[in-house]
Computed example of a mutant assay.
Amino acid sequence: MTEKKPTGLFSTKLVAIAAVAGIVAGAAAVYVRETMSGNAVETADAAQCAGTVEKAEALKPYFSGDVAAMVPVSEPRLVEGLTFQDQSGAPMTMANFTNKTVLLNLWATWCVPCREEMPALNNLQKAVGNERFQVLAINIDTGDVEKPQTFLAETGVDALGLYRDASMGVFNTLKRQGLAFGLPVTLLVDGKGCLLGNMNGPAAWDGADAKALIAAADGA
């Protein structure tokens, strides 16, 4: 029987990393070289995302503490062109999460900061996940599914499911859009699929600062 590791072990280290990330945004991220695969980059629909910049501006006071590295969007941007698979292998896009505030996170088992923040993301989903909010963690390990499945089982990450893109296309798309340069990368997306903010590097997502940000974004 696989032994589950306690999820609280990472908290102190993540709080320290998040504090540093607030000073040097993204400094803790693991640099990733872009592969040749990728999804088509879509042009942001300014009409659909009208008011998003103002919404992000209102959230600025919540981009602090553990989540100080979150950068608010400066122009309307629709998060499109991302294709991945759900736990059953069925194809998905961000359109599947319409009407939900989404914390979109890209991770890989070979990314040490990712491994350390996954339990915190799991705790966040357990604490505040509902029909209006979801943590969407997408694994970008290449190869078969065994490695990420084993990691989730060993660390007791049981609330996120295993969403995957083994082609790394989601990362490549976000990199070309200037939203990602390494892992982990996290996007805060509203219910219309519009970007509110993005962060490169890990954070203590189960802390009070992150929960306050999600509550504010969900109600914005």
Rank of each mutant, 00 (worst) to 15 (best):
D165Q: 06
T43N: 12
D165W: 10
K192G: 04
P72G: 00
E57K: 09
A210S: 13
D206V: 01
T52D: 06
G129F: 09
T109V: 08
V135H: 07
V112N: 12
S74V: 05
A220Y: 02
L160G: 02
G89Y: 04
A27R: 08
K175G: 06
A46M: 11
N122E: 07
P113I: 05
K4F: 09
G169S: 11
A95M: 12
T186K: 01
E131K: 15
D141H: 09
F97N: 06
V41K: 11
M1E: 12
V20W: 09
N130D: 15
V145I: 14
A159R: 02
V157S: 14
A28S: 12
G156M: 01
E34M: 06
T52N: 04
L183I: 01
T2D: 09
A215P: 01
A28I: 05
M92L: 11
V67L: 10
M70N: 04
A166L: 01
D66F: 07
R176L: 09
T109N: 07
T93N: 07
S167G: 09
M1P: 13
A216F: 00
K192R: 12
T173H: 15
V71H: 14
T155H: 15
A18V: 01
G219L: 10
P148T: 12
E146Y: 13
D158L: 05
A19R: 15
V24N: 03
A217E: 00
G143T: 09
A25T: 08
C49S: 10
L152Y: 11
L106S: 09
R77D: 04
T7Y: 09
A153T: 13
G201Y: 12
S74K: 13
A180I: 08
V135L: 06
A204M: 08
P6M: 07
L162V: 08
T142A: 08
S64L: 04
N105L: 11
R115W: 03
G81P: 07
P91I: 04
E154W: 11
C111F: 14
V15I: 09
G182H: 06
V128A: 12
V32I: 15
L213K: 00
L124D: 02
T142K: 13
M36C: 05
S64H: 14
P76T: 02
V15Y: 08
P61M: 06
K60I: 06
A21D: 14
I140V: 13
G193T: 07
V41T: 15
N99K: 13
